Amino acid sequence: MNLDTINQYIRSVELQRGKIAEFTKYPFCLPAIYNLFHLKFHPKVTFIVGENGTGKSTILEAVATAYGFNPEGGTKNFNFASMDTHSDLHHYIKLIKGVNKPKDGFFLRAESFYNVATNIDELDRGGGGPRIIDFYGGCSLHQQSHGEAFFSLFINKFRGEGVYILDEPEAALSPTRQMAMIARIHELVQQGSQFIIATHSPIIMAYPDAVIYEIKESFKKVKYEETEHYQIMRDFLNNTKKMLDILMK
């Protein structure tokens, strides 16, 4: 075991299969969860990719919640709940942690980021301390476009030496901003951060110092060029007219 592995914040996740009464119920019926035993994370960046409905967000949510983040997103200090839609999977997994503890952290869920922004505004209206929004760039996230708010989060709130769990961060980002996000990820990795990211973006998953797990029936470690997302996008861009002719017949 090398020093990076010992020091990394989250080393792996194990499914405690003996605690599960029925694998026919959600979320245990999902093939990715049904076939999950032990999953190792890269000390810098781990990508989880796959088709819609394969369980990417479900496993990411469970890891984040087990680590102490709010299931809807935010830092560990956020305790709001707008709707109880998260699964119970976090009760059935065990996180294997390294010896180091992060100084920062955030769980980003694209689908519930609006709720995080709303909670920040509500807390700041209550007063009683420093404005929370100042840690996010000083401007209400609701007064920015969706993409600007996402990018403001990456630039201002993520401060290094942290655990950042991101669920589809590309959802609001243009291709140019996705490339800028790669640069920001690299800055934060050099500052001792660890990322676990579920994504559909062939741009973001191109970050080189990473492990990519592709979900089909189970988690499979693959190279960037082996991912279905990369291959489909490559084929579409290289043969746009032919692909459109096929799709529109």
Rank of each mutant, 00 (worst) to 15 (best):
F135C: 14
T199W: 00
I203G: 06
E226D: 13
R17A: 00
G68K: 10
A210G: 01
N239S: 12
N7S: 12
I133A: 08
F113K: 15
T85N: 11
G68V: 11
F135E: 14
T65Q: 07
L153G: 02
N238W: 04
H186P: 03
M243A: 14
S193L: 05
M181E: 02
I96P: 00
K249I: 04
F80I: 03
N79S: 14
G73H: 09
N7I: 10
F37C: 08
E61T: 13
E225R: 11
G18S: 12
A117T: 12
Q8C: 15
N156K: 07
K216D: 11
G129N: 07
L60I: 14
S218K: 15
L237I: 09
E72P: 03
Q231T: 13
N2L: 11
S152T: 10
Q194R: 11
F236M: 13
D134S: 09
P208V: 01
R17M: 00
F113T: 12
G192W: 05
P102S: 12
I204E: 03
G128N: 10
R109W: 00
N2E: 11
E14D: 13
S112G: 07
M205L: 12
G129D: 10
M243R: 10
Q144V: 13
I96R: 06
V189M: 01
T54I: 04
E61D: 12
F69G: 02
Q178F: 09
Y164M: 03
I165N: 02
F154C: 09
S140C: 13
L89Y: 00
N238E: 14
G137W: 01
N115M: 13
F28S: 09
E72A: 11
V63C: 04
Q194C: 05
L3V: 13
E168R: 04
I182Y: 00
E226L: 09
F80T: 06
F23M: 14
L39A: 07
T65L: 01
D121H: 04
H186A: 14
F135L: 15
D209S: 02
R125L: 15
T24E: 13
V222Q: 07
H200D: 00
G137I: 13
V222E: 01
I185F: 06
G128D: 09
E217W: 02
L95G: 04
K25H: 02
D167M: 05
H229R: 09
P175H: 00
K103D: 07
I196C: 06
C29H: 14
Q231P: 06
L188C: 06
I204Y: 03
H90D: 12
R159T: 13
T54H: 04
I246C: 05
D84F: 04
T75W: 03
R159G: 08
